[in-house]
Simulated scan of single mutants.
Amino acid sequence: LANFGQTVNVLGLMERTDQDFIDGLALDLFSPSNRTLVVQQNLSPLPGNFVSGSSGAPFVSLSNYSWVIKLNETANDLIAKIELPYDPVALQKVDIDQGNTYVGVLAADKKSWTVFESQRNVHVSENKTRMIKMTSLDGEYMLLGRQTADISNIFVQYGQGATRTVNVTGGSGIEDAEFIDGLRFTIESDHAFTMNVDIKNGVPADVLPPNTSSLNNPAMLAAKTAGGVYAEERLSVARRSLNATSEWFMPLSRQSQDLLISEDRIKVPGLTNLDGQYVVLIS
Rank of each mutant, 00 (worst) to 15 (best):
T165Q: 15
N76P: 00
Q255F: 09
K93F: 12
D264L: 14
V103G: 02
P204Q: 10
L91T: 03
K133E: 11
E126K: 11
Q92K: 13
Y102I: 03
V166S: 09
E175C: 05
L13D: 15
A231D: 14
F59M: 10
M131H: 04
I69C: 07
Y278E: 01
V197L: 13
L259Y: 04
M134S: 07
G12W: 11
L271F: 02
N196H: 09
S241N: 15
I132M: 12
D18E: 13
T129P: 06
A90N: 12
Y86L: 05
I22Y: 01
L259D: 06
T163D: 15
D206P: 01
S31Y: 04
D87V: 02
L71S: 13
S246W: 04
I180M: 14
Q98V: 14
F4Q: 05
S112R: 00
S61E: 09
N72V: 03
K93W: 05
P269L: 05
V8I: 15
V124W: 07
L274T: 08
M14D: 15
F185C: 02
L46C: 10
Q160L: 15
P32I: 07
A222V: 10
D176L: 02
R35A: 12
L25A: 13
S189N: 10
V103P: 00
E73N: 11
E117F: 06
